[in-house]
Structures are given as C-alpha cells and as structure tokens.
Design a protein around this nucleic acid. Structure first.
Lengths: 262, 262
DNA sequence: CTTCCGTGGTTCGATAATCGAACCACTGAT
DNA sequence: ATCAGTGGTTCGATTATCGAACCACGGAAG
C-alpha cells in the first residue's frame, strides 16, 4: 500500500532535472496532466519545507536548499567523504585520471561520486547522472554481473527503445560474458563522446554486484592499452572499497536480489 | 493552502539527520507521535520512489540514493561545480586554507560548499550543516547585515534557548555593528572547537545579504592577525562570486525580504 | 483603451483517499 | 511458554483531496 497523494507529490519532484530545472505552475500541471490546483497545493507544501524554491520575480519553481542538506546526511551516513573519497583520491593521484564510483539502482547505473584528477577534464558535474546499463564501461561491468534473465530483459528494453548503443543482442551478450570472465571493462566515447574509461566491479559481502569503480580520462591519452596499464592501481584499492561498502549496506535498489524484476 | 498529507510526509524526512540517520517503523511513529500505519504507508511510498531505502536485514529505513541525484540537479542549476567551486579553489590555493560558502536560509545559516585546502583538516563533511546565525564568523557576518528587528528576534530566541554563544545581547549587538562597518568577521572555536575562520559577506544584485564566504583553518595556524592577512585573497574574489550568485538567484529562503519574520 | 489569453492563486461542495483500532506473523528476551 | 516487541495489513468511518469555476493581474494584439 502506498500513499496516492505523496506518490503524486514525488512524481512532481521527478520532473525537476538538470535539463529542465525550473517550472511554472501551469506549465508543470500541463506536463504532468494534473489539475493545476493540486499541483499548486503540493508545490507550496514543498516550498514551505524548503524542498522547492519559488523565484519571487519569475514565479518559477526550482529545487530548494533542502536537497543540499539531505545529500549531506546520505554522504555522511555512507562515510563517503571520510572513507570512500580518500581511497578514490589515492587512485586518482596514482593514475593521474579521474575516478568514478557507480552504483546499480533499479535497472540503471548512477554516478555516486567522482574524484577528479588534477589534470582538469571536468566531468564531476555528472554526479547523480543516471543511465542504462549497456552504456559505458562503468555500467557494462555491472550488467555483466547480473543474472542472465535480467540482462535479457534490460537489453531487450534497450533494443525496443532503439538505443544506438546495442549493435546486436548476441554480440553484447558475448561481450558481457567476456567482461565478467576477465573482471574488468574498457570503453570509449559511450557515455561521453571524448571520454574513455576502465572499470572493475564492486561487490557486497555476499559477493553480489553492487556497482563499479572506474578510471576515466580524455580519449587522446586513454587507449585500451593505457587503460590496462592503470588496472593494477584500481585493483589494489578495490578490496578496501568493497569492505567499506559492504559495511554500510548501500541504499540503492538492487531489485535483482528480490526477483522483483520478473 | 498546504497539503496535510505531503506536509506530514516531509516532516518524516526531517528526522533523518546526520545524528539519527536510520529509523525503524514504530520507533519513528512514536517519535513523531503518529499512528504507525500512516507512517508505514508514507515510508513505503518514499521507498518506491527511491527517497528512502529500507535495509532488508535490519528493516530500518534511511535516506536513499535519490538525494544524491537531486543534489546534483541543484548544484548544476547553481553552476556550483563549474563557476563557484573554481573561484573557491583559487582562494584555497592562495591562502592554503579551506574555503566555505554559507547561505542564509530562513533564520539560520547553511554550509553549501566547502573546498578543502591540500593541508588536510577535514571538515568538508559539514556541508549541509545548519546552525544559528550568532555562532561563528561565517554566520555572524550574515546576521550583521540583517534588519535590526530581525537581529533582535534571532538573538532573543537564542537567549531563550540558553545558547552559550551569546554573552550579552548588548555586547553582541555592538559587535554586529562593528562587523557590519568593517565588512568582515573573525572568530575561533565557535562552530568547531579547533577551527578559526575569517568571513566576508555576499550580496545579491540589490545589495541584500545572501550569505558569506569564509576561509577556515585550525586555530594553531589561524590567529586573528593571520586571518587579516588572508583577507585580501577573499576580497579579491568575492566580487566575481557575487556577480555569479546574483545571476542564479539562490534558492534559499530569505524571509527578511518579504517581512515574513514579523 | 479594451479585449484577449495567459499567468499564479483561491474557493467550496462532491468525492475519494486517508486514518487508525484491531488484526496477523514473526522474533527474541524472559 | 509467555510476553513484549517488531514490521506489516485490513476495512469502515472520517476527513482531506479534488477540480470546476472563480479572482486579479500582466502583457500582447487589435
């Protein structure tokens, strides 16, 4: 049982994205196919609580400061800045490239933390970005470790949505098997045109896939060979990270564990 | 008009803090003086949407991955990582200390961004921390620029709550006047025992107080004199920051603008 | 200047979702 | 074996939500 009203309210929050971060009242109501009265009531509730902010000049709504506060609660609870970030930093220093922590959530991958190398190729702004599991090394390495039925389902849905990222199902499935066997994955130009990455899997205490750890850098200085050379730096530290992550029980939705995906 | 159901739901989120990040169902219902049925319904709704995560082993709830995602939307919209952080970094490099961006929200100050110096005195984990405006340089400099009636109200409430931070109302009010006149503020051991800070105010396009920018470091290497020496590095960059901040219209609740505080 | 269409915001009776006492099933301590 | 605690569910009474119709305003077009 779920609350219809709260559910509706949260659906409203969902449309505040990086692409469309501000909304007018009626514009929003139209988009959600809702009566503007109810949208208005929910918006003011969010506003009162600091979850939304209504720009007094434009009268448009945007996400509020509360999310900065609550993000901190999450990061603190996960020991991200005290335990996880230092390990990522170490790898970043050793390899001179940026390090990315990705986790599985529902049937997608989410960038949870990015530690940048000093050589500025900024893509830390992609934290929170969510995308399909067949795109990019960081995501494919996760997909490779999921149950085969779920792989099937995800790839089929990808093909249905006409994703350019899937050449053919057979080839992808084969590729995933190779990735799983070898224990790492390299890709270039998939999530971002100019970026290449090298990824290894992260598991929980029961050795079930949780996410991935990646090194990423600009294509021109990051060939497959260079990726391979940086692999040891990743693998050296990934165990430490695993033991930390298994202790905190990461709050991401891994439906495959409960077979919710069938 | 505000939605009672959504309001209730958001009140539930409020109890997930750094101090108490996980809650059991009945424990939470008791704490909020609510029937556990309704708490349960709301919790599952949040869970379905990724705002809460229910640990399957302990059955305890905690904030979910959604807050990492939405925090990113806010930061992106405010150009925090692309525009603001580089300026803060520049100051951090010049002074060798950490740089803190604080904003006014309702009647409190919130740390929105902390850029750490290389000399590791970690307190970046305090991002999102919220505290009263009479505590610490970063907050006092804001308080000093608020309307006098509001200063009165805030200080009176502080005295009422028996805050140790207020010696006497008269002295504090005098102090605030000095701070406002001089345009900067130094403090040590207020927000954190071992930390000293030096702060300057941030204004919006109409020259109304918005927040503050601070340099902070461990007391042993951060006397008032050393703070003063670092002041120019702050002031040099604060204008750039001001012009950026005035463009984005920061989504923090500055009730003093609308006289809501009376 | 007036009309018109758009915006954000409010009202109030019909309607439908919420509420909550009482109820499982389970676990762990006594 | 009992008991007190937990998370979770049920269902009729209650009450908050819903939404058509309504302002007031503001800018564009005639």
């Amino acid at each position: 049982m779920s609350s219809k009203t709260v559910d509706k309210a949260l659906s409203i929050l969902d449309v505040f994205t990086v692409e469309t971060p501000t909304w007018g009242l009626r514009e929003l109501a139209r988009n959600l196919d809702m009566n503007h009265t109810i949208v208005h009531r929910i918006l003011t509730t969010f506003e009162d609580k600091g979850y939304l902010y209504c720009n007094p000049e434009t009268k448009k709504y945007e996400l509020g400061i509360k999310f900065i506060e609550l993000n901190n609660v999450v990061e603190e609870h996960l020991n991200i800045s005290t335990m996880i970030q230092p390990i990522m930093k170490e790898i970043a220093v050793k390899t001179g490239e940026s390090v990315v922590l990705t986790v599985l959530d529902e049937e997608e991958g989410v960038f949870v933390k990015i530690v940048e190398s000093e050589q500025k190729v900024r893509f830390a702004e992609s934290v929170g970005k969510r995308s399909a599991l067949y795109i990019g090394a960081s995501h494919k390495i996760i997909l490779a470790h999921l149950p085969e039925e779920l792989q099937n389902k995800i790839i089929d849905e990808g093909i249905e949505s006409q994703s350019k990222q899937i050449p053919s199902k057979e080839k992808l499935m084969e590729r995933l098997e190779t990735i799983k066997r070898e224990g790492w994955c390299f890709s270039e130009g998939e999530t971002f045109d100019d970026v290449a990455a090298c990824s290894v899997p992260l598991f929980d205490s029961k050795h079930q896939i949780l996410g991935s750890l990646s090194i990423a850098g600009p294509k021109y200085r990051f060939s497959q060979q260079e990726g391979e050379e940086k692999l040891p730096a990743l693998l050296e530290n990934v165990e430490k990270l695993n033991s930390i992550l298994s202790k905190v029980n990461f709050p991401s939705r891994r439906n495959y564990l409960t077979k919710k995906f069938i």
